[in-house]
Amino acid sequence: MNEQFWLVVQYPMKSPKGNQRDCWLRDKVMEYLEITLGEANLGYVDGFDMGKCISDPNQYALNLFCVVTDEERSIALIKRILRESRLDYTRIKIATMPFGEEGTYTLKYAAKKGDNGFSL
């Protein structure tokens, strides 16, 4: 299976640059995802951005970008790792988009029930 996907894990923030906790969370989540995706041969972390959301400049987010080969297994693994590691699992959204295509991300998981909107 050579198909790849962009996968983004999104956390809400209260300010454009985030606070000390947001920066710590960014570093820890990136570290855990890099290790677990690599060990499972599912993909890698490609980077992050922090700041204003495109769809609503009054909202701020931390976005962690990954490239994965198996969408469903990667989502399940990421959810499990963030929950077990207590890395603010109750605040995340996970969305995917086919790799190499211009388009929009499709929300695959939101920790808050009824929250079905996603934008970078």
Rank of each mutant, 00 (worst) to 15 (best):
E71K: 12
A95I: 00
R21K: 08
N19D: 10
E3N: 10
I54P: 09
F5N: 06
W24T: 13
R83Y: 14
Y44A: 15
Y89L: 04
P98V: 02
L77S: 04
D56W: 08
N63Y: 07
V9E: 10
W6M: 09
V68Q: 00
F65C: 06
S74K: 10
A40S: 12
K93L: 04
G114P: 04
A95V: 01
V67N: 12
E71D: 09
G51I: 00
T106K: 09
M1P: 07
D70C: 04
T90G: 15
R80T: 09
A110F: 02
E102D: 12
G18Y: 13
E71P: 07
W6S: 14
V9C: 09
T90F: 15
K14W: 15
D56M: 05
D115H: 05
G47E: 01
K79T: 01
G38K: 01
L33A: 00
G47T: 03
A110V: 01
Y11L: 07
E101C: 11
M50F: 07
L37D: 03
C66M: 03
R73G: 14
M50Q: 07
A111L: 02
L62H: 08
W6L: 08
L77N: 10
Y32S: 06
A76T: 13
G18K: 09
I75N: 06
E71F: 12
P16C: 10
D46V: 08
V67W: 15
P16L: 13
K28L: 02
D70S: 14
P98G: 05
I94H: 03
N41Y: 14
F48Q: 09
S85I: 00
N63K: 11
K112H: 07
Y89H: 10
Y105K: 05
G100H: 06
R91V: 12
Q59V: 14
I78Y: 03
E84Q: 14
A61H: 11
L120D: 15
A61R: 13
A95Q: 02
K112W: 05
V45N: 02
L42K: 00
Q10K: 10
G47F: 01
A61S: 10
I35W: 00
Y44W: 15
Y60N: 08
T90Q: 09
C23V: 15
A111W: 04
I81L: 01
F118W: 00
Q59M: 10
E84I: 04
A95L: 01
C66K: 03
L62E: 09
I75E: 02
A110H: 02
F65Q: 07
F65G: 04
